[in-house]
């Protein structure tokens, strides 16, 4: 059998504490990152993603300390993102114990950054996060957009005018080893992944795609890994608040024939 599909819990971090953004606006405190990471490791998570949701605006020292503390406690891969703008940021996070570093806004503003980081640190540790949503309906007299999904930055607040599928192809050409794809339409809704978006990106690139945004049930995870063709699924709230464990999600997926590590 080839490589297994992955279940990836995500911790959103603000000033060193875990939060869960609902559409990245309404956030509530959900605990200590080290405790949460240890819990997910024990549940059998395949990887852990830690995103610093305020790092674009604020200092980064707290995040490095959090990563150092988490990395001494878990022995599964750790991806860290939020406010990564230059190779020195990548190095600081890798040195703190991250295995992969995710970049988002900086990659849009300066696509050469992807190339520089991939050349210096290797594609295997460079993840490009893409936040995408369907363009808003235009007024009648407007020319209709030929874009199905547009890339947004700054936590989904800022439009870029960039086509998400084209951007996915470009980031891979520039050296990204993985794409973390979030549907901004679905994030926080619990209505399931945007299957069409995820499948379009997964089919457009040769690197693994992590689907994110909208998981409300175990069936959503199944759909993400099958119909949407994602290589990994990211989820926060269904695991955070004890609705499901990673272990029970894996039992469910294996029962439905998904190739998974248990």
């Amino acid at each position: 059998m080839p490589v297994a599909k992955r279940i990836v819990p995500c911790l959103d971090i603000d000033k060193g504490r875990v939060v869960k953004g609902v559409k990245f606006v309404d956030i509530k405190d959900a605990g200590d990152p080290v405790e949460a990471a240890r819990g997910y490791d024990a549940q059998g998570a395949d990887e852990l993603v830690i995103l610093d949701i305020t790092a674009s605006h604020e200092g980064r020292d707290t995040l490095v300390q959090v990563i150092e503390a988490v990395a001494t406690q878990i022995f599964i891969p750790l991806t860290v993102g939020g406010g990564v703008r230059k190779n020195a940021d990548v190095r600081a996070l890798l040195n703190a114990g991250a295995d992969k570093v995710a970049m988002n806004t900086a990659a849009i503003e300066r696509p050469e950054f992807i190339t520089e980081a991939a050349q210096r640190f290797g594609s295997q540790c460079i993840v490009v996060a893409i936040d995408a949503r369907r363009p808003k309906k235009k007024k009648k007299d407007d020319t209709p957009s030929d874009m199905q999904w547009e890339v947004f930055t700054h936590g989904g607040r800022k439009s870029t005018g960039i086509d998400a599928i084209k951007w996915a192809r470009e980031v891979v050409m520039r050296g990204a080893g993985e794409i973390l794809l979030t549907s901004m339409d679905r994030d926080g809704t619990k209505e399931g992944f945007d299957i069409d978006l995820t499948r379009a990106v997964a089919d457009a690139v040769d690197v693994p795609v992590i689907a994110s945004g909208g998981v409300g049930s175990l069936e959503d995870l199944y759909d993400g890994l099958t119909a949407a063709r994602a290589d990994a699924v990211l989820a926060a709230s269904i695991f955070h608040f004890g609705e499901h464990t990673v272990g029970s999600a894996k039992e469910y997926l294996r029962g439905r024939g998904v190739h998974i590590r248990v």
Partner: peptide, 15 residues
């Protein structure tokens, strides 16, 4: 079938 395409890098858990 949906999940048979091999991706590179080989990234994740294997036996």
């Amino acid at each position: 079938p949906d999940d048979t395409r091999i991706k590179v890098p080989h990234m994740g858990w294997n036996q």
